[in-house]
């Protein structure tokens, strides 16, 4: 245990924690808009394109982070243009870039004479090798991202939920769509060092899917997703650090699996809550045509009888075995 606590005094661990916190905030914030536009895999597509960016950095000796930002932004714009102009579906546009990005990245890394190990740092993240400069870079990008997504929330929400309405409302829909794509690209490169390019989309999508299980408004989903993202990123990092005394445990996969575990545990709760709400929502008030009395009814309904009591006009109906029984004097009515 003391070994574990002493980890916090290590500078690289402190930097890793800050980077994980920032990524956990930023990725779900933009991810919510992607999920809303049914572009959940956009982050994945951009991540694959960014592999080529990293490879170009390795080849030219420039900072792979910066080349990844540039190439990822270009890729994101390209996906958006193909989606908007071509009559191709969004997912086909994504698939095209998926393969091009990954193939280009592996090819160029080979030409640069770099081994797979170097590329792997970017593919699956290497929180522990983050420099102080990287942390500041991540911090700056996260601030930009959060200010833009939260500040322009009404605009982005309108554009993502109904582009035609947004256009007639005078919004420049194409500009906002490009903004979302560019912000997604920036997020991918922010998260590149934490969870890696191949797993980055998980941190954008899984927290949103988790929050959705319990939320019914957009705002709650967005906030919930950011909370889940932070918990998963920090928790995953600490978990992997704690486990690393026994085995080689990479932080990236641990973060993603923790987020998935959170989804898996909220899912049944969400199913149960939705079922319960449906069961207990009031029956519509309709003028009844007849008065039907139950046959012999040995059971006595009451507050604690265990049968759902559903509001119906000025009384409650007790629901069981496909019947709706309402108390009427000494007997029950079929409603």
């Amino acid at each position: 245990m003391n070994d574990f606590l002493s980890l916090f005094s290590l500078p690289f661990m402190q930097r890793a924690l800050v980077a994980a916190l920032l990524t956990g905030l930023a990725a779900p914030a933009i991810g919510t808009f992607l999920v809303q536009r049914r572009l959940a895999l956009l982050g994945d597509g951009i991540g694959h394109v960014a592999v080529t960016g990293v490879a170009i950095g390795l080849l030219t000796g420039a900072s792979p982070t910066w080349t990844a930002v540039v190439v990822a932004v270009l890729g994101a714009v390209l996906i958006e243009v193909i989606r908007e102009r071509g009559h191709t579906n969004g997912d086909v546009a994504l698939a095209l870039l998926f393969y091009g990005g990954l193939a280009g990245g592996v090819l160029i890394t080979g030409i640069a004479g770099q081994g797979a190990a170097r590329l792997q740092e970017y593919l699956f993240g290497s929180l522990t090798s983050i420099s102080a400069g990287d942390v500041w870079f991540t911090f700056g990008l996260t601030v930009v991202l959060l200010v833009t997504t939260l500040g322009l929330l009404p605009q982005l929400f309108a554009v993502a939920s109904d582009p035609e309405f947004a256009r007639v409302a005078g919004l420049r829909v194409r500009a906002y769509n490009l903004l979302i794509a560019v912000l997604a690209a920036v997020t991918v490169t922010v998260a590149m060092r934490t969870v890696g390019l191949l797993l980055v989309s998980a941190l954008m999508v899984v927290p949103v899917a988790t929050a959705q299980q319990l939320a019914r408004s957009f705002r709650t989903t967005l906030t919930g997703a950011m909370v889940v993202g932070v918990l998963a990123a920090l928790g995953g990092l600490l978990l992997s650090a704690a486990l690393s005394f026994r085995a080689t445990v990479a932080p990236g996969p641990t973060i993603v699996l923790l987020a998935l575990a959170m989804f898996a545990s909220t899912w049944p709760i969400g199913v149960w809550l939705r079922r319960r709400r449906r069961l207990l929502s009031p029956f519509p008030a309709v003028e009844s045509t007849s008065h039907t009395v139950t046959d012999e009814h040995p059971h006595e309904h009451g507050q604690a009888c265990g049968h759902p009591a559903v509001p119906h006009e000025d009384h409650v109906d007790y629901v069981h075995d496909g019947h709706r029984h309402a108390v009427h004097g000494e007997h029950y009515d079929e409603h």
């Binding site: 809303q36 500040g151 009404p154 929400f157 035609e164 939320a215 408004s217």
Partner: peptide, 30 residues
């Protein structure tokens, strides 16, 4: 503008209030 059979449902849940509030966008500053 009320578009034809707009896709009122999207990937993320939103409440009636939120959808209606997005119409106020024409009079709001970013």
């Amino acid at each position: 503008f009320v578009p034809q059979r707009s896709t009122a449902s999207s990937g993320v849940p939103s409440t009636v209030w939120e959808v209606v509030a997005s119409g106020r966008i024409t009079r709001r500053r970013p």
